[in-house]
Design a protein around this nucleic acid. Structure first.
Length: 262
DNA sequence: ATGGTTGTTTAACAA
């Protein structure tokens, strides 16, 4: 099974990107974040036409929104809510073989990395704390996958400059700590770093504001694929499809891919 | 220290 996660930064003006990625990669399952569209206005037909007969959407107007496009049948679609907020950041389905798939768009956290003065940063930390508590109650021996834009770059090699980003939201020690607790709570295995040496710099997001994103290469690894221990031996390959960052009207995030022997 | 770019929705706001 080939699975892609991609923050598409609004699905409606970027359908051509999904078409192009499907032509290049032929994935079985695509998990999207930041679809920025309410469910009634989601472009189902063009995505069905691409071969994704099974689509589960969880959107809202203008902000956030997640969706799962699949060639394989999906069961048990669930929408999950955190921090007592009625937004659209987390959905789950069950894939054939009983594999539970979670698609998450974690709050970005605003600019100021201080929960006392920045409610968005407080929300981000609380979201991870609540997730950690919930995952601790679930059985990690079940086959599960968690993907998404988690808006945290945990390793020093997940950012272009560890030193220069220590006080920048996405790489602060307090975020990395919360992120680590969420990961440890369910013994999640980082499927991408299982295949790509953690010593090697690896990014999935580059700001639109750079004149030349590739030349400056000031990236961060914000998009992740995690699996529970039963699936860890089944990771065949993992990769960031960086070339998509150069496509016309690109998202600021690149697709992240994993191939699992399931 | 500041500004740089996108999308959504229409003057900001979020990222």
């Amino acid at each position: 099974m080939k699975l892609v996660t991609w923050n598409i930064n609004s699905i409606r003006p970027r359908l051509h990107l999904i078409e192009r990625m499907v032509a290049a990669e032929d994935p079985d399952v695509i998990c999207l974040q930041e679809t920025k569209v309410e469910d009634g206005k989601f472009p189902l037909e063009p995505l069905h036409a691409l071969g994704f007969a099974h689509i589960e959407q969880f959107g809202m107007k203008a902000y956030h929104g997640v969706a799962i496009l699949s060639r394989l049948p999906l069961k048990d679609h669930a929408r999950h809510y955190w921090c007592d907020i009625d937004d659209a950041r987390h959905q789950s389905v069950t894939l054939p073989g009983g594999i539970e798939l979670h698609n998450v768009y974690l709050p970005s956290g605003g600019d100021e990395p201080d929960p006392e003065i920045n409610p968005k940063f407080a929300h981000k930390l609380r979201f991870m704390t609540e997730q950690a508590g919930w995952w601790a109650t679930q059985d990690p021996d079940r086959p599960r996958i968690l993907v998404g834009d988690l808006n945290v770059a945990p390793l020093e090699t997940d950012v272009w400059s560890h030193k220069q980003l220590l006080k920048v939201v996405s790489h602060t020690p307090v975020e990395v700590e919360h992120f680590g607790r969420m990961q440890a709570a369910h013994r999640w295995v980082d499927a991408v770093r299982a295949k790509i040496d953690p010593a090697e710099p690896l990014f999935t997001w580059w700001s639109y504001r750079a004149r030349d994103w590739r030349a400056s290469n000031r990236g961060r690894r914000l998009d992740h694929i995690w699996v529970t221990p039963p699936l860890a031996p089944k990771i065949r390959a993992a990769r960031v499809a960086m070339d998509a960052r150069d496509w016309e009207r690109a998202s600021d995030h690149a697709p992240v891919l994993v191939e699992l022997d399931v």
